[in-house]
Design a protein around this nucleic acid. Sequence first.
DNA 1: ATATATACATAATTTTCTTATGCATATGTA
DNA 2: TACATATGCATAAGAAAATTATGTATATAT
Lengths: 112, 112
Amino acid sequence: MSNSKLYKGSLITIILKLLDESDKMYGYEITQKVKKITQGELNITEGALYPALHKLEAQGFLDVEIAKVENRTRKYYKLTEKGNKETSNKLSELEEYIKTMQTFISPKFSLE
Amino acid sequence: MSNSKLYKGSLITIILKLLDESDKMYGYEITQKVKKITQGELNITEGALYPALHKLEAQGFLDVEIAKVENRTRKYYKLTEKGNKETSNKLSELEEYIKTMQTFISPKFSLE
DNA sequence: ATATATACATAATTTTCTTATGCATATGTA
DNA sequence: TACATATGCATAAGAAAATTATGTATATAT
């Protein structure tokens, strides 16, 4: 069940990016999608996911729509206009971060 | 002063990698080196660094040696044998993580 | 009947930061 | 001389973002 792989701070970016790709998604669907895409590498826990979705909604980045499918409740989330901007900001941040970290990983980063 | 760029969990990896490159380093030196390498992108705060160094030492990954230079105290840290193993583990983890995150960033990651 | 999958949620706790503060020495500058 | 900045360590309070542990409920497969 555990991750130990999800660097703190990146869950929000993952959620936003997934919603950017597919018009709308519900929580459980996100956990399954992440598992599939990462081939089991990343497992989003519900204790992290749901509070994150609620926060994004409270910040006005997501709109929610409740649906009943096969007698079970789903909460579909989609990006607002504000959420679109936030997504590109978060993605830029992540790309920058990866570049920075790669300067550390590369065997010779010496700028002395 | 603030970062907002240091994803939680990566500081330890940065410290270990730096110590892997240069035989021994002291705390303040690490903060300056990180600033230089990342061209100011990352600023390691002391409140994060020193506790992290103490923890790594307590875990047996670092040895410490106290020196007096120009009447000021320095605490030099170096990797133990155990620390070397931990370093390669942490670096592998980070590389894997970056690969995973890049599958999200890339415009089309659909495995459907 | 029981386990597993689907679907949401929250509380307690832990980890890992930031921010703020403190102590002390050395050096450059107004 | 006074004051700011740089060097060098440290810890405490608080915030953020996870994990772990629960809880509720329905559907389906064994």
